[in-house]
């Protein structure tokens, strides 16, 4: 799945995350900020990369501003941003989105 245009999903509210995806040419370039970067940064990075991999996105610039989001929220925001970049709002392959 190619990111052909920039898209954003999520907010800066507590327990949320704002995810921006942009077209890229050098694999996944992930920029992450979070108030819990030291204890959970690696976990957040892992969840974001795992979600992108499941969506078969392998070229993108991704920025995550975390506000203490749970894993499920991170996955939801990454997925929403990716599908928004494709202007795809219907017929989402929900059955193939796990984890």
């Amino acid at each position: 799945m190619n990111i052909t245009k920039s898209a954003i999903a999520g907010t800066l509210e507590s327990s949320d995350a704002q995810v921006t995806v942009c077209p890229g040419t050098d694999g996944i370039q992930l920029t992450l900020s979070s108030p819990v970067l030291r204890p959970y940064g690696e976990r957040i990075r892992q969840v974001v990369l795992e979600t992108l991999r499941a969506l078969e996105v392998d070229q993108a610039e991704v920025t995550v501003v975390d506000r203490g989001a749970l894993d499920c929220t991170l996955r939801a925001r990454v997925t929403a941003a990716v599908y928004r970049s494709m202007d795809r709002f219907e017929n989402i392959p929900w059955g193939g989105l796990d984890p």
Binding site: T73, A76, Y83, R84, F89, I92
Partner: peptide, 15 residues
């Protein structure tokens, strides 16, 4: 609406 559906789906699956 689209983002809310993604949030709902992930919450139902994981919480």
């Amino acid at each position: 609406k689209d983002a809310a559906r993604h949030t709902l789906f992930r919450a139902l699956r994981q919480i």
